[in-house]
Write a protein that binds this DNA or RNA. Sequence first.
DNA 1: AGTTTATAATTCACTGGTGAAATAAATTGT
DNA 2: ACAATTTATTTCACCAGTGAATTATAAACT
Lengths: 165, 165
Amino acid sequence: MMDEGIGRMHDAIPSLPAEQATLCRLMSMVGKRMDEGLEEKLKPHQLNHSEFLTLMILHSRPDGSSTPGELCEFTSQGSTNMTRIGNALVQRGLVSRGASAEDRRCVLIRITAAGRRFVQKMLPPMFPHTEAMFAGFSAAERKQFSRLLRKLAKNLDQLDAEQAS
Amino acid sequence: MMDEGIGRMHDAIPSLPAEQATLCRLMSMVGKRMDEGLEEKLKPHQLNHSEFLTLMILHSRPDGSSTPGELCEFTSQGSTNMTRIGNALVQRGLVSRGASAEDRRCVLIRITAAGRRFVQKMLPPMFPHTEAMFAGFSAAERKQFSRLLRKLAKNLDQLDAEQAS
DNA sequence: AGTTTATAATTCACTGGTGAAATAAATTGT
DNA sequence: ACAATTTATTTCACCAGTGAATTATAAACT
């Protein structure tokens, strides 16, 4: 379907790089699909993607804490949105928010004991789904896939850097 | 960075399928990055991703026309949003909206001559960027990448189908 | 020391997208 | 033929995320 469409575009505009355009569409579509699947799994827990990711990152930090600014970097969210995410998670008692001792401009966000328990409980039931997504992928294919994705990511970094300059 | 984080999660919860989780994160991140790059390129033309995609699909149809319902399917947009997209494109004179003769419930959306000219003009300057994203990818790698993405897409379809039943 | 500049977080107004209800036309069953 | 069901689109109310302006603190300059 998509292939036909891009094929016809290529007929109309022969300079169109059909193969690359197809890969773009695939990345975009499949990425979106994956995210929707995850969001589905998170719905019962009343979390959205970025709240979940924020909580995961906090959980995975040695001391369980970070600042809004850092979390923005790690989650690729804007600071505006991180404020809201913080509000949501604090409200549910999964994280705490306090002033930083060293730099009083900063806020310290820390996962609570309840937050850790919540993660430990809600995470494992998601694993079967995660594994099923890659059913039929050999270890070599997974490795290759990872390599290609990282290569693409690097090119995108490169392009961003060029554009910024 | 992400690898370390997932590694520490794996330490805390050993049943976590680290490799698959990493691939999920990569897909999500890289897909998002690609979309942002595209959006950037579209901004000068005052189009967003879904308006662009809708216009592309119309352009690539043999007769240059479709219905909102079809366009929803093809773009994976909700019908609500397609109404807005239609409004935006009609307002700019890139597409026209009229009643369908066969089924009077349907609306017929058709790309205009101005719409086609617009596409022909704005598309080619985007090609270098599209090609640059896959710089350093051999033909074999591109093919492999496409294969893996389609395989993943198939698994996701499968999972959706199971869940629906 | 005191002014300027830079950084961190928040608030506000807006955009893009979603779900539920409303409307209208076609299809099905009797 | 006509009532009931299904399908197509739109409208309305809401959610998630973004950019610009605001406030507070820290760092740099003179």
